[in-house]
Design a binder for these strands. Structure first.
Length: 201
DNA sequence: GTCCGGATTACCT
DNA sequence: GGTAATCCGGACT
């Protein structure tokens, strides 16, 4: 085995992301997001893509804000919204074609003290990562992380293999008006306490 | 240059 | 369950 060979997990996930964001999004459930001592198991994601999805940021073409979404599968697309919040996405589809998976919620595994210090308003551990803006706050994710490779095994922010869910619930994406007919929200059905909302609607 | 609304959160009733 | 906070990106006058 070559010492420079990429781990099978990363290669397989990157290939799945490149092939189809809707098929790949549920594969992110159960994966571990890690940064230093902090780690968490992803329990909720949403898929966005061009050209047939009006809810996708890149639906009207490339801009400076969404440029990372046109990059290589496995990159982090991080954007700012609502005046306060950063959102973490995993880029999908081949370079030049925009698609991404929004990471909406996770179950904290390690480094909870650091997460709590960055989320002082969270009263319970279930409040630490149960929303896309909460998750980025607890991991200290911001503009500086936009464009980093989550599957390269080199950067501080990484996606690693975990325990896949036994059951998955799908539903309409949260906060989306155009494109709500797409059931592209995916949740680990056995991890609902850690999700951004108790039940899909 | 100005205006509108947002892939949200947290607090209030 | 309803809504204020907060400010940037994209569209348009």
């Amino acid at each position: 085995m070559s010492p420079t060979a990429a781990p099978p997990f990363a290669e397989a996930l990157r290939a799945a992301l490149e092939a189809d964001v809707v098929e790949a999004a549920p594969l992110l459930l159960g994966c571990i997001l890690s940064r230093g001592e902090r780690s968490a198991r992803i329990v909720e994601v949403e898929a966005y893509r061009t050209p047939d999805d009006p809810a996708c940021h890149a639906h009207r073409g490339q801009t400076r804000r969404n440029a990372t979404m046109f990059g290589r599968p496995g990159l982090a697309y991080v954007y700012f919204t609502y005046g306060n919040h950063w959102m973490l996405n995993v880029v999908a589809h081949p370079p030049g074609v925009a698609a991404a998976v929004l990471v909406r919620a996770a179950e904290p595994l390690t480094g909870l003290e650091e997460m709590r210090s960055l989320r002082p308003r969270a009263r319970r551990d279930e409040d630490l990562l149960s929303g896309p803006g909460k998750l980025t706050a607890a991991f200290g994710i911001d503009r500086a992380d936009d464009g980093c490779d989550l599957l390269g095994g080199r950067g501080p922010l990484r996606l690693e293999p975990g325990v896949p869910p036994a059951r998955i619930v799908t539903g309409s994406r949260i906060g989306v008006t155009d494109g709500r007919e797409h059931l592209w929200r995916f949740i680990d059905a056995d991890a609902l306490p850690w999700a951004s909302r108790p039940l899909p609607r």
